[in-house]
Design a protein around this nucleic acid. Sequence first.
RNA 1: GCGCCUGUAGCUCAGCCGGUAGAGCACUCGGCUUUUAACCGAUUGGUCGUGCGUUCGAGUCGCACCGGGCGCACCA
Length: 513
Amino acid sequence: MSKAVDPASNKAKTPPTEAKTNSAEDVSKLKADRLKKLAQLKELGINPYPYKFERSHKAAQLHELYKDLEKGSENSDEVVVCGRIMNSRNNWLFTDIHDDSGKIQLFCHKDSLPEDKFNLLKLLDKGDYVGARGTMKRTPAGELSVRIKDIEILSKSLLPLPDSWEGFNDVEARYRHRYVDMITNPEVRETFKKRSLTIRHMRNFLDDNGFFEVETPTLQVEAGGADARPFVTHHNALDIDLYLRIATELHLKRMIIGGMERVYEIGRIFRNEGISTRHNPEFTMLEMYCAYGDYNELMDFTEKMLRYIAEKVLGKAEFEYQGKTISFAKPFRRLRMADGIKEVTGLDVNTLKTIEEARAAAQSLGVPLDKEDSRGHIINAIFEAKVEHTLIEPTFLMDHPVEISPLTKVHRVNQGEVERFELFVYGRELANGYSELSDPQDQRSRLEEQAKKKAAGNEEAMPLDLDFIMAMEYGMPPTMGIGIGIDRLVMLLTDSASIRDVIAFPTMRPVKA
RNA sequence: GCGCCUGUAGCUCAGCCGGUAGAGCACUCGGCUUUUAACCGAUUGGUCGUGCGUUCGAGUCGCACCGGGCGCACCA
């Protein structure tokens, strides 16, 4: 065996200790069985939790290297593998271990194993980590195996894993004990690998396009840049309340003003809103800003980036989501909000000149209104009620009402509109981008309008950030900027129905004792 | 926050009109050994989410509470 797996290294470094049995009554029998084996291992002078192991191959490498090994044949190539025991048959004769590349079968025959190692098998359980050395063999049944000559325990598992056939389906338990979910359901690990790849390739794409990744404050005196209620926390030394950020927008624009022409941040955002299959209180968003571009260029750029990411992560730009085919390969549809409403409802919002007319139109369409307090908010409510869910294929929904977009440049042609788009896929908002407002006087009056609403009790309205306005007064270049919900993108790429399936540890109410 | 559904063994689930808690897998033991959910036999395993109530008797009926899922609302 290699140096790292020399049996000597497996001797207990600390004196064997007896398993604690004083609380045995409240331990399940299954755990008690394992604690007994743990104690026996220690009595044999074996450290059940050794320090290091060096393998020669991962499971997938072996399957690739020996794919031509014929049924029933063996060779003398020696390999060293390690992983978690997930299944065994015939009294450990056939034992599957899993590593992060896949599974490999250990063939544990007494003729190949020293007696002490053969006896060690009896002290193993499903869930234990082991390392093993042996030669390659393919069983008559066709299963590539390692005929092991040596085996050692790398970690003793004390708790039983869920049944391998029925699986682990209890949704609450899967979220609360995600590690068990990941051990038992391999597709969960695949989802989080794809999440990682999504972020990696997003970074690569942006970096290759001359962007700098920057970091802006999570703790803020005023939480601005989006319509959302923030979390409040307290800094003791300063003795002030601070808010967790609800967007990175206002600081990233300050960096544009500071002269960094292309910046982005992939960061955690916190919004004190409801929880649903599409909302988690903390989520991850890309925000990206680029000087000298407008929203038309930004739509082209966004399409290219999403296409690139899908191709890198999935190997293709067209995929199934919840039974629908979604294509990032074809050019995305571009639809003006007014046209979308007209298409679905027949209503021409341009004929709505006042808030009263807008309210009447919404009522006649059966769109319930709550606190919408402007013509633009009502038009947006009509859109959300009637049109949004119809946008399955990727669609840039463009040219929103000015009232709902306080950080966006007014449309260069159409009065009452702004140069903004939201990207909808499967009826859900995935991204939100615009020609960034750069006129400090316009910005001041728009934020003053927001501040008035906030003072009137609208908790989602933006605060008046005077430093942000001052920054803009120094001069901000024409800029395009976008926010993309990473979690929702990963949902699409992994065909996940709930955002909790792409967040490893979603927010849960604690269980009371 | 509202509505519907849901919580029984380590896992997956039965449990009818209220009558002493069940199965499969896993575990343990014995048998048998080249399997593909191995097989055969035996054993073991439960504060039925929590509490209160109705009842001679509650997993089952009622109320409250604690979690969770989905939908709505909020929002991205």
